[in-house]
Structure formats: C-alpha cells, structure tokens
Computed example of a mutant assay.
Amino acid sequence: MVGTAYDSGALFAVLLAKELKAKYKNTVLGYVWSLLMPLFQSLVFFVVFSLFLRFPIEDYFLFLSIGFVVWQFFSNSLTQGANVLLANANLIRKTCAPRLIFVAASVGAEAVHLLISLPVLLILMLWCGRVPGWLALGLLPAGIVSVLLMAFGLALIVAVINTYFRDLERIMQILLQVWFYVTPIFYSTEQIPAEYRPLLLLNPVFFPVELLRCCFYAPQPAWLYCLAALALGGMIAAVGMVIFRRFQDDLAEVL
C-alpha cells in the first residue's frame, strides 16, 4: 500500500508537470498568460459595461477580475478534464495507473494558475484602497477548496461522458457560454430581480465567486457562503468520484 501511494504520488507529480509544460509550450510569456487572460477579459468588460453602459458597481475592474479568475479556473478545468483521458489514451491502455490521477493532474494544473492569480487580486484590492480583513481572508481557503472540489467532481463526470460520447466537447462550449452569463461574473446579485435571486442557489459557481468577493472586494465574514460552498463542493466531488469509479475499469477498452 505504501509503495502504491508513493507511485501514485510520483505519477501525479509527473502528470502535473506535463500539463503545466504543455499548456504554454512555445509561448514567450508562458505562465504570465494565466494572469493576463482574466485581466484582459476584465478590461474588455470594464470598458463596455462601466464606461459605455455605466454599470453602477464601485471598483468595477476589481469586481470583474475576481469573477473572471474563478470562472477561468472552473471553465478551463472542465474543458481540459473532458479531454484528458483521450489525450492520455496510450498511457491508460498500457498501464494500470489509477485513471482518476489523470483528471486530478489536469485540474491541479489549473489550480496552480488560480493560486498564482490570488496575489494579483490582493494588489488590485490594495490599489482600490480596500483593506483586507483577517477574518474575511481567513475564509479564502474555503473558497479555494470549494471551487477545487466542484471543478474536480465535474471534471470526473465530463471525462467519463466524453470518453463514450465525443460530441460533449462541442456541447460543452455552448453550455459553458450559457453558464457564464447566468453566473454573476460581470453583474452583481443586486442587479438581478428579487424574484429570480433564489435561482442562484442552483448555480454551484455562484458560491465560490461570492466567497472570494467577500475576501477581496467587500471584506466580511461570509460564513453562510463558506458552509454552502464547502458542502456543495464536497457533494459534487463525491458524486463525480462515484460515477468515475463505476466506469473506470472499462475506460481502457473504450479508449
């Protein structure tokens, strides 16, 4: 058992390094793109909705950046997770390595980019004159863990589905676009009519986005968001693992 755990850990490290190298291979800026992309997206939405449409949101660029950092991690994790088994088909067919590790490494690579983005959010927060509260920042790990669990659980599910149903990759592009617009990334919950706000509770990404905004945008102890995000993240991860383990023994043959 010890040897198996060691081998699994070593394989995870190798796959994680592979994912990180492959993502920005032959690029000049490399990992800097993981910081620039959400900032560029925030800048575009800032110009359109703050300067042209006049959204009444204070420090709108900071508000946007927090949402885009979370969304980029979540959407990239699902997109990469859907293809990770197909991309490693030869290795999966030739080895008895735990299939779950391939998905974990894929999500882990995106998690590295998420963690790199956090200091940038802190700098933007200070630049806007907002002082981080220790109690609010103490909830930051809960926000990170919750979105990690959600992304990992859903990545496991889409990885299995895409192995059997290859059209999922294209369907996901549409679904993620719709998901983006129904998540308060570039608008606040207060701009949603009161009668529709309860529907946000059905959106798992809503909780980590709001939780990180409680840390970096409007520092406050959001214990309700914290508990809801962790509970929902744990549930999604558990469901994803059950589904993945149900089909993992047949993956080599299907691939």
Rank of each mutant, 00 (worst) to 15 (best):
A155Q: 02
P132F: 10
G143E: 11
V182S: 01
P204R: 10
F180W: 02
A105M: 11
F186S: 05
R166L: 01
A104W: 02
V158W: 00
L156A: 09
A155F: 01
F152S: 05
Y187N: 00
Q177N: 13
T189S: 12
M125F: 11
A105L: 07
I144R: 03
S117E: 13
I116F: 05
Y164P: 01
W179C: 06
L121F: 14
A111F: 10
P184R: 00
A159K: 01
G138R: 04
I116L: 15
L154G: 14
L122M: 13
G143A: 09
A151I: 08
S117W: 00
L199R: 09
V131I: 13
A104T: 08
D167V: 04
L135S: 13
F180V: 00
P141S: 09
G129M: 13
M172L: 14
P198Q: 03
L149T: 05
G133A: 14
M125G: 12
V160S: 00
G143N: 08
L149G: 03
F165I: 13
G108F: 00
P204Y: 08
L148A: 13
I161K: 00
R197N: 14
L139Y: 12
H113F: 12
A159Q: 03
L200N: 08
A159F: 00
A155T: 06
V107H: 07
L201H: 11
N162D: 03
V120L: 15
F180K: 00
V147F: 05
P141A: 11
D167A: 07
L176S: 05
V112W: 05
L168Y: 04
V147T: 14
L135Q: 14
V205A: 06
Q173T: 11
V145L: 12
P119V: 04
G129P: 05
Q177C: 09
Y196C: 10
L137T: 07
V145K: 05
L149Q: 14
F207N: 07
R130D: 04
T163C: 10
C128F: 08
L126I: 15
P119C: 09
Q191Y: 06
L122E: 02
W127M: 15
I171S: 04
L199K: 09
A142W: 03
T189E: 13
G143V: 01
V145R: 05
L139D: 00
Q191P: 02
A155V: 06
L135P: 04
P198S: 11
I185Q: 01
H113C: 07
